[in-house]
Computed example of a mutant assay.
Amino acid sequence: MRLQRDILTEKLRAGEWLKQADIESRYQANRFEVRMALSELAAKHLIDHIPNRGYRVINPSDRERSDLYEVRTILETAAGRLAAQKCTDEDVDALSKLVDEFEAAIDTHSRADLIALNLEFHNSFYALAGNELLVDQIRELRERGIPGRKGGWDTVAGTRASNEDHRQMVDMLRRRDADGLSYTIYRHLNRWREFTKPTDSE
């Protein structure tokens, strides 16, 4: 779905209102198709439906984002342990190529391209857990965390640091080091806390 892709690549910003007429024009879609798309995205918690006002891209508060990342940490460290048990050397080599591709793209590609590459890496990584339900839950929560996120991607150095986490995740996977992998995933997921302090005011 192009509308979902534009939210996930931040072409549509957190908190941005989605006018049905604009969406119809932008995506060359009819009213029924737009309504179905909006309902589906609301069910995925990528947009909010505000009664009598319409739809807008989600913009989680710091408290909501903190809760989201706590759940993600639990699921993704568990999935990492499964991946360490089930992966093959060929799987690890394929992930390593994605890390190299992301590194090469940092200085030459758009933020939207980097987000897409990042999603591809994580989706490929957790697919190695071999549990489709777990992978789907991780993907949904990861996507919910994209709009309005803050953190290391605000600088080139931070983006490189994020990809170095990916490289270390692949290294732990190659060693079949489940404990080291769990720690690396935990650190990677919680880097954002260095850049924002959760509050209850939002």
Results as ranks from 00 to 15, higher is better:
Arg63Glu: 13
Gly180Asn: 10
Pro60Trp: 08
Thr108His: 06
Met1Arg: 03
Ile106Glu: 03
Glu16Thr: 07
Thr73Cys: 15
Asp107Lys: 09
Gly54Arg: 09
His45Thr: 04
Gln4Val: 01
Ile58Gly: 02
His122Cys: 08
His188Thr: 09
Phe121Met: 10
Arg142Cys: 02
Ala178Phe: 01
Asp165Thr: 06
Asp136Trp: 00
Leu173Ala: 04
Thr184Ala: 15
Phe121Pro: 11
Asp200Asn: 15
Pro198Thr: 08
Ile23Ala: 02
Glu103Ala: 06
Leu128Lys: 10
Asp107His: 05
Arg2Lys: 03
Gly80Trp: 06
Asn59Ala: 11
Tyr126Asn: 00
Ala29Gln: 02
Phe195Gln: 09
Glu143Tyr: 10
Lys97Pro: 00
Ser201Tyr: 12
Gln137Asn: 13
Asp62Arg: 10
Thr196Met: 09
Leu114Phe: 07
Ser162Trp: 08
Leu95Tyr: 06
Gly80Thr: 08
Glu40His: 04
Glu16Ser: 12
His122Thr: 03
Leu189Ala: 08
Leu173Val: 03
Arg65Met: 12
Pro147His: 06
Glu16Met: 09
Phe32His: 03
Tyr55Phe: 15
Asp177Lys: 13
Gly151Pro: 07
Arg56Ile: 04
Met172Trp: 04
Leu41Met: 07
Leu38Asn: 04
Glu10Ile: 10
Cys87Glu: 00
Gly180Ala: 06
Phe125Cys: 00
Leu12Pro: 02
Gln4Phe: 02
Asp6Pro: 00
Gln137Met: 14
Asp179Ser: 15
Ser124Asn: 11
